[in-house]
C-alpha cells in the first residue's frame, strides 16, 4: 500500500468528565479545533461539543429535551452544528447557530426521512442521506440565504478543483 505518512500524532479524545464512557459518531469542525461526539447522559444519547485539544466542553443551549441526538456535523469554525434530533415521533434535522443561540429546523421534502447529515464547512449547503420510497440515497440542499457563511479566514472561494485527468 502507498507511501508513508508518519509520524502521525495520536491522541484519545479528551475525557468528558464522567470517566470511561462510550463515544460515537465523531465530527470535527473544518479547522479541526472542535470535536462533536455522541455520549450517554441520563440514558439519553446526547451530543457533546468540546475543544479538541483542551477537552473544554462548550454549551449547546437549544438541544436539551430533544434527544436522542445523532449525526452531528460542524461548520468550519464550529459556528454551526447540524444534527438530527427527536421531534415527537419523527427525526428532525436542525442547525444550532452558536453565535446567535438560534435553533433552525430544516424541513425535508415530504416523504424523505433523514438518516445522516453532512454540513458543508462554509454552512452554505448540506448533504443528507435519506430514506425515500424504501430506498436510501444522498441528496444535496442549498442553505445559502438561510445561514451566513462560516468560512476559514483567508480561504479562497471553495469549489471543486480541476480534478485528475481520467
Amino acid at each position: 500500500m502507498g507511501c508513508g505518512l508518519d509520524p502521525l500524532r495520536r491522541q484519545a479524545a479528551a475525557p468528558t468528565g464522567l470517566g470511561p464512557e462510550s463515544r460515537q459518531q465523531p465530527a470535527l469542525s473544518g479547522d479541526g479545533r472542535l470535536l462533536a461526539t455522541l455520549v450517554e447522559r441520563a440514558g439519553r444519547t446526547t451530543v457533546l461539543l468540546q475543544e479538541r485539544r483542551s477537552g473544554t466542553v462548550l454549551p449547546l443551549r437549544q438541544l436539551r429535551n430533544r434527544q436522542p441526538h445523532s449525526s452531528p456535523s460542524l461548520s468550519w469554525n464550529g459556528r454551526y452544528l447540524a444534527l438530527l434530533v427527536q421531534q415527537g415521533s419523527l427525526r428532525q434535522a436542525v442547525i444550532e447557530d452558536r453565535a446567535t443561540g438560534r435553533l433552525q429546523p430544516l424541513f425535508l421534502p415530504p416523504g424523505q426521512e433523514p438518516q445522516q447529515l453532512s454540513l458543508a464547512p462554509d454552512g452554505q449547503s448540506m448533504a443528507v442521506e435519506v430514506i425515500s420510497g424504501g430506498s436510501q440515497r444522498v441528496q444535496l440542499f442549498d442553505l445559502s440565504g438561510l445561514l451566513e457563511p462560516d468560512r476559514a479566514p483567508g480561504l479562497r472561494q471553495s469549489g471543486g478543483g480541476p480534478g485528475l485527468a481520467p
Partner: peptide
C-alpha cells in the same frame, strides 16, 4: 445522485461530495 442508485455516508467539503 439519483442516477447512482442507492447511496449513503455523505461527506461534503468545499466543492466535493
Amino acid at each position: 445522485l439519483n442516477r447512482i442508485g442507492s447511496s449513503g455516508s455523505p461527506s461534503l467539503a468545499g466543492g466535493w461530495l
